[in-house]
């Protein structure tokens, strides 16, 4: 693998695994929030990566290889192989992980749960009324949680929404 290293700033590109045409994905564009959207493990290592389905295991391996550079990993509808890979990496995973499963997809739910159990820094979030293609089914819902996670990492647990009805 011929990979260069990008800066780990908030403007670093979003590296995508497992999307047919990442650059054209409206959901990824929303999640990236101004970052460049790039694809494939032959791209530069960067602080933020996102993977879908069968590519989630590969993304975890990539993050393990570039530990210290990869800060945030988003796994969309991970499969059993990704759960197995997470088990192999375990506590050595230095990045914050967001595992997303659709409520209509029991397989991803089980895998995401196993990943959460294997990786201490993993957060599990269910996206209601979606299956494996949540990026197509409910892109706004996926983008809302994923963008917040990328921007704030584990601080995304704490609401920063303005609750006032009127000033």
């Amino acid at each position: 693998m011929n990979t260069t290293v990008n800066a780990t700033s908030s403007a670093a590109p979003l590296l995508c695994f497992g999307f047919a045409d990442a650059a054209a994905s409206p959901a990824l564009k929303q999640i990236a929030a101004g970052r460049a959207v790039i694809s494939g493990a032959d791209q530069a290592a960067t602080s933020a990566i996102i993977a879908k389905g069968a590519a989630c295991g590969e993304a975890l391996s990539f993050a393990a290889q570039y530990a210290g550079i990869v800060e945030s990993i988003i796994l969309i509808s991970p499969d059993e192989a990704a759960a197995k890979r997470a088990g192999e990496i375990g506590a050595e995973c230095q990045a914050q992980v967001l595992a997303l499963a659709g409520t209509l997809d029991a397989e991803s739910g089980a895998a995401a749960t196993a990943i959460k159990q294997a990786l201490p820094s993993c957060h599990l979030v269910y996206v209601f009324d979606t299956s494996k293609d949540m990026d197509i089914e409910r892109p706004e819902a996926l983008a809302k949680v994923a963008r917040d996670f990328l921007a704030r990492r584990d601080k995304f647990l704490v609401s920063n929404a303005d609750g006032r009805i009127t000033p």
Binding site: L100, K116, Y126
Partner: peptide
């Protein structure tokens, strides 16, 4: 039902409800 049955802490990104954990 998920809150009753899921043993791992989880977040919820719904249409009307949103919880981080």
């Amino acid at each position: 039902k998920m809150a009753w049955t899921q043993t791992e802490p989880f977040g919820w990104q719904g249409r009307y409800y949103e919880y981080r954990t």
